[in-house]
Structure formats: structure tokens, C-alpha cells
Amino acid sequence: MLVVISGLPGVGKTTVADIVGARLGAVRLSIDPVEEALLATGFPRGWKTGVAAYEAVGVIAELNLRAGRTVVVDAVNDSEPARETWRRAAVSAGSTLCWVVLTMSDTAGHASRLDGRHRGFSHIPEPTWTEVAGRTMEPWRDRHRAIDVSGSSEDVAAEVERYVVEFRSDA
């Protein structure tokens, strides 16, 4: 099974994906470290490098799915082309695809999460609240669960796990 945790920067995708991945014994994959590595090797910052990072992680996800592993990915996935990466990986590996979209209704809290955030990247700048607030998510056409991250990361992860179990039983 491929579990893709999506949402705008700063909602806690990586933290929740780490918890869910550990609890499921899953392979954990993330876009940002791959994009950071590409930029560190001289790729230009921009859309093409971001797409390359998605595609590279998509291939790694597919290989792990083919090996029978559960994969948890965290990525913004704000557009249909980004989401298509995961659809292709799941279909190619004969796997199910479970979408989770993390949201944060507390805009002040969301803004404060970004203020002073440093994830240790040298080539990927941290987004500002203005940049994040100006982003849009294309409407979702796939079945998904939207989860507000107002609770603790542990509570959000537990809700994601419950959805994954529900999704598996429906698939």
C-alpha cells in the first residue's frame, strides 16, 4: 500500500509521516531531501528540479511497493501532475493508493510554525507564511481524508492510521 500524506508546507506532514511510517513498519520517503540533494549537485532551483525530485521518489516508492513493502510519502501534492506521480507508481506496482491531506484551520498557528523554522537544508529556503498563504491546492478528484492538524502529532497520526485501516478494508 502507498500512503501519501499531502498538505501545504508547515502543516506537519513530515512529523506525521514519520510516526505513521514507524507504526506501520513502512518505508518513509520525502520529496524535500531529494530536491535538496539535486540542488546540492548543481541542478537549478525551479520547477524542473522539483518535478525531478517527485519522479525520483516515485520510482523509489514503486520499487519498494513491488517488493511488498508499505510506503509512506510526504509531499505537498498541490497539483494534478504531482499526484499523477503516485497514481503511476501504485498502478505500476499493483498497489493501492491511500491519500491523506493535512490541513490547519488555525492560520495564526500555521504561520507561527513557519516562523523561524529550519529543517537543516542548505539549498531549499524555508517558505514564508506569505508564500504558503498564497498557494492553492488543486481540487482533489481522488478519494482522500482531510485531517485538521489542530491536535498533537500523535493524535493526527492515530487518525491517519485509523483511515489507512479503514481504507485497506474497503479496498
Rank of each mutant, 00 (worst) to 15 (best):
A157L: 07
L39K: 05
S105W: 14
C98W: 02
V57Y: 00
A40D: 12
D106C: 13
S169W: 13
V51L: 10
A171H: 02
F167E: 15
I147Q: 07
E166Q: 14
L24G: 14
D115I: 12
P81W: 00
G12R: 10
E131T: 11
H123Y: 11
S169Y: 08
G46T: 05
V59I: 14
G151H: 11
V132M: 13
W86H: 01
F121N: 11
P33A: 00
S92R: 15
S153D: 09
G68D: 04
M137Y: 05
V73G: 03
A157W: 05
E62R: 04
K48F: 07
E154Q: 11
R88G: 05
A67T: 03
H144K: 02
D32Q: 00
V101F: 08
V156C: 15
V73L: 04
A61E: 00
A17T: 13
T70V: 15
V3A: 12
T14P: 13
S95L: 02
D115R: 14
L114G: 06
S122H: 15
A108Q: 14
A90T: 01
V71R: 00
L29G: 03
A93M: 02
V4F: 02
D148G: 10
E154A: 13
T85W: 00
W129A: 08
A108N: 13
I5Y: 04
H110I: 14
F167Y: 13
A82W: 01
R45A: 09
I124Y: 04
E62G: 02
L63V: 07
R69S: 08
R113G: 06
G120S: 09
F43E: 03
I60W: 07
S122R: 15
A171M: 07
H144Q: 09
H110N: 10
G94Q: 00
S6R: 10
